[in-house]
Simulated assay, not measured.
Amino acid sequence: MNWNTKSFYELTHDELYDLLKLRVDVFVVEQNCPYPEIDGYDKVSKHLFVEKEGQILAYCRIIPPKVKFDEASIGRVITHESTRRTGIGTELINRALEYIASAYHHPNVKIEAQSHLQSFYGQCGFRTISDEFLEDGIPHVEMLFEEKK
């Protein structure tokens, strides 16, 4: 397996196509949620993904501090159906947190998580900081990861 962290402009055409296809396949088709998948954050984000034999197995987008929130953010977290419940999602989040701490020297990370994934993100060190709200018809909560002092 090959882990990659690339800017939008470092992605190959094939990588970009495969990342967007996976995001649409899961977030739009599988979750039956038509929404604006291309939202303007991709060009300023880092794209963390793992691939094996040309297939993307897991992906997330890392948004720098002061772009979406004061804190850095992780979004579009996704695992390919074949790799769910294998631990790859936890490894993905841990690698994203390590990248943020190293690249931005910014220990806090804010996310908008689908409500049913609060336990998963909680195991990764996030805590819920908002009431539930609807985002594109799906219940979400804001969660925060804070560096341990």
Rank of each mutant, 00 (worst) to 15 (best):
Asn108Glu: 09
Val67Glu: 01
Glu81Pro: 12
Phe8Lys: 00
Glu10Ala: 01
Arg95Met: 03
Tyr99Glu: 10
Arg95Pro: 02
Glu135Asp: 10
Cys33Tyr: 09
Pro36Trp: 10
Tyr59Leu: 07
Ile93Met: 02
Ile88Val: 07
Asp18Gln: 15
Asp131Ile: 08
Ile63Cys: 05
Arg95Gly: 03
Asp14Cys: 06
Pro107Gln: 14
Leu16Tyr: 14
Glu71Tyr: 01
Val50Met: 13
His116Val: 13
Pro65Leu: 01
His116Pro: 05
Glu98Asn: 14
Gly75Ile: 07
Ser82Glu: 14
Met143Cys: 01
Ile88Ser: 04
Gly75Thr: 05
Glu51Ala: 12
Ile56Thr: 11
Thr90Tyr: 12
Ala58Asp: 05
Glu112Ser: 15
Ser119Met: 14
His47Trp: 12
Tyr104Ala: 02
Phe133His: 08
Gly54Asp: 07
Ser82Asn: 14
His80Leu: 11
Ser102Cys: 14
Ala103Glu: 09
Glu15Asn: 04
Lys149His: 06
Asn94Leu: 11
Ser102Asp: 15
Pro64Glu: 01
Leu11Met: 07
Val77Ser: 02
Pro65Tyr: 03
Lys149Asp: 14
Glu98Val: 09
Lys68Glu: 08
Phe69Met: 05
Ile38Asn: 04
Phe145His: 03
Gly89Asn: 05
Asn2Arg: 15
Thr128Tyr: 10
Thr83Phe: 09
His47Asp: 10
Glu146Leu: 04
Glu81Tyr: 10
Val24Thr: 15
Pro64Arg: 05
Gly40Val: 02
Ser115Arg: 15
Ile111Gly: 00
Ala101Lys: 14
Gly54Met: 03
Lys66Ala: 09
Tyr121Pro: 05
Glu81Asn: 13
Val50Glu: 07
Glu53Trp: 11
Leu134Thr: 10
Thr79Arg: 15
Trp3Ile: 01
Thr12Tyr: 00
Thr5His: 14
Met1His: 08
Ile56Tyr: 06
Gly122Gln: 02
Lys66Gly: 09
Lys66Arg: 12
Ser45Thr: 01
Tyr9His: 13
Leu117Asp: 05
Ile138Arg: 00
Ala103Asn: 11
Val50Asp: 07
Tyr99Phe: 13
Arg95Leu: 02
Gly125Cys: 00
Lys148Trp: 13
Phe126Asp: 03
Ile78Thr: 04
Leu16Asp: 10
